[in-house]
Amino acid sequence: MNGDVISERLTQLGVTLPDAAAAVASYVPALQTGNMLYISGQLPFVDGVLKKGRLGHDVSLDEGVAAARACGIMILAQAQKALGSLDRIERIVKLGAFVASSSDFTDQPAVANGASELIADVLGEAGRHTRSAVGVAALPLGACVEIDAICMVRPN
């Protein structure tokens, strides 16, 4: 897909990619090896504020979906920074979604759809991916969602 199409889709969706977040511990946010780009877990920052809490406790399903979408936006921002252009993404191979949730909350896949649908809307067929969505007791900094990504990329 060409970069103009991706840029147009971002505009149509009302998405402005933020600056890619810096690492908050001892790791790198994105690492390319060969034709694969690994993007570390991204947290849901909305207007610079981290969405905290647990689904099924103090975060609604709609808030969780919006938080996952924010993680998807940051995944794209990390890819843009690492690759120089989202046009280099050949395929999003897999997303891993971690949802801080109460023990009786079972809609982790619905939460993860916030990121999955955004990425497919932006990248088209290249954005369709495999995925895992799991519930966890807690996430870094109290975040309600964290999502990482594996991407296949085109050479420079």
Score class of each variant (00 low, 15 high):
1 M>K: 08
3 G>C: 08
4 D>G: 07
5 V>M: 14
9 R>G: 04
9 R>S: 03
10 L>F: 03
11 T>S: 10
11 T>C: 02
13 L>A: 06
13 L>Y: 04
14 G>Q: 06
15 V>R: 01
15 V>D: 00
16 T>L: 11
16 T>C: 07
16 T>Y: 05
17 L>N: 01
17 L>R: 09
19 D>L: 08
19 D>T: 14
19 D>C: 11
19 D>K: 07
20 A>S: 05
20 A>Q: 02
21 A>R: 06
22 A>Q: 07
22 A>G: 05
23 A>K: 08
24 V>P: 01
25 A>D: 09
26 S>C: 05
26 S>F: 00
27 Y>C: 01
29 P>T: 04
30 A>R: 03
31 L>E: 06
31 L>H: 13
31 L>P: 03
33 T>M: 05
34 G>H: 06
38 Y>C: 06
38 Y>L: 12
38 Y>K: 04
38 Y>N: 15
38 Y>F: 15
39 I>P: 09
39 I>K: 11
40 S>P: 01
46 V>S: 14
46 V>H: 02
48 G>L: 00
48 G>A: 02
48 G>E: 09
49 V>H: 12
50 L>V: 13
50 L>C: 07
50 L>N: 08
51 K>L: 14
52 K>D: 08
52 K>Q: 13
53 G>R: 14
53 G>C: 02
55 L>E: 07
55 L>T: 09
56 G>V: 06
58 D>L: 10
59 V>N: 04
60 S>W: 13
61 L>A: 05
63 E>I: 04
63 E>R: 15
63 E>S: 10
63 E>L: 06
65 V>I: 13
66 A>E: 09
68 A>S: 12
68 A>Q: 09
70 A>S: 15
71 C>M: 06
72 G>P: 08
74 M>G: 13
74 M>H: 13
76 L>G: 12
76 L>I: 03
77 A>Y: 10
78 Q>C: 13
80 Q>Y: 06
80 Q>H: 10
82 A>Y: 10
83 L>C: 00
84 G>Y: 05
84 G>R: 02
85 S>V: 11
85 S>Y: 09
86 L>R: 15
86 L>G: 14
87 D>R: 14
89 I>N: 03
89 I>V: 13
91 R>A: 15
91 R>M: 13
94 K>I: 11
94 K>L: 11
94 K>T: 15
95 L>I: 08
96 G>I: 13
98 F>K: 15
99 V>H: 06
99 V>T: 11
100 A>T: 12
100 A>S: 14
102 S>I: 00
103 S>D: 15
103 S>H: 10
103 S>E: 14
105 F>G: 05
106 T>H: 11
106 T>K: 14
108 Q>G: 01
109 P>M: 06
110 A>N: 12
111 V>C: 02
112 A>F: 03
113 N>A: 15
114 G>M: 02
114 G>V: 00
117 E>A: 10
118 L>E: 00
120 A>Q: 15
121 D>Q: 13
122 V>A: 04
123 L>S: 01
126 A>Q: 08
127 G>Q: 09
130 T>C: 01
133 A>N: 04
135 G>V: 00
137 A>N: 13
138 A>D: 15
138 A>R: 11
140 P>K: 04
140 P>R: 02
143 A>L: 07
143 A>Y: 07
146 E>Q: 12
146 E>L: 03
147 I>S: 02
147 I>K: 10
152 M>W: 05
152 M>T: 09
156 N>I: 03
156 N>E: 14
156 N>S: 08
